[in-house]
Design a binder for these strands. Structure first.
Lengths: 135, 135
DNA sequence: TGCATACTCTATTAAATCTATAGGATAATA
DNA sequence: TATTATCCTATAGATTTAATAGAGTATGCA
């Protein structure tokens, strides 16, 4: 299941990408328009900024804004930052690999075999979609 | 993330499918061989039985056994029973559809658009894999 | 300088879900 | 009738997610 964090983060990014100009938008405006708890959204936008997707400006006239073109923001990056591993099990994760402690051999593990395919197919979707494609 | 329930369930099914004969196998044997908590596995096998994947026999010589051929057990069915919806958001779920209360229009929602693709690609993988393919 | 604005950051709580365990009930076998 | 092994419900413990609170910091403007 997709977390609210990811869902809200994607919605916020989409909201910003839809706008014509790149002037800062206040958290409160995004929260209101997208029906998101403002405080919760606050923390999400913060991590998006820390990971290089957004810029921010404090004080009057401040807010958040995209610092890259929508078509340059791959869903792979966004998903990894917000949702974490794309793989459903750590033993098939490219960026968050971890061995299963209950599994003696990954090469003969059916779960591994299946989840490897699922990871690859999801990855292909994310690679083929940028923020611009969500609009 | 794949739940332990699903992971253990798949492992148990695979374990049974690997065997040549179809005589009942005790929970304790599967649990030991696959490094799964016996009590937890008990409840998992129970739901697999209730959903038509396994048969069971009580008393001495009892246990669980497959009641269909491995190549007839689609991963789509297994995943839905153990893990629940294949979609990552309810608004793109075929079997567990639910409208998002924060989203005014699914047709213009970027999250919906993306997750629809992810669902379809996952579904294709599950459709193309039977229990026999995991061995 | 002083004030209002809006993001920054940490900590905490509340809720939900997942994982695991306990223990008695039921059915089959010998 | 004793033994074996599944059946079933309830519950406890752990983890994760979602949301909130509140003080701190930087900015713009009069």
């Amino acid at each position: 299941m997709l977390s609210k964090k990811t869902k809200y983060g994607l919605k916020a990014l989409t909201f910003l990408a839809k706008r014509d100009d790149k002037s800062p938008v206040q958290i409160s405006e995004i929260a209101e328009q997208e029906n998101i708890s403002q405080k919760f959204l606050e923390s999400i936008l913060l991590t998006l900024r820390k990971n290089g997707f957004l810029g921010s400006k404090k004080g009057k006239g401040g807010g958040y804004y995209l610092i890259k073109e929508p078509q340059e923001i791959s869903m792979t990056q966004v998903m990894r930052v917000l949702e974490g591993p794309i793989a459903m099990v750590p033993c098939v994760s490219l960026n968050f690999y971890e061995k299963c402690d209950d599994c003696p051999d990954e090469n003969t593990c059916g779960v591994n075999k299946l989840m490897l395919q699922v990871r690859d197919s999801a990855l292909e979707i994310y690679r083929n979609n940028t923020l611009a494609d969500l609009i």
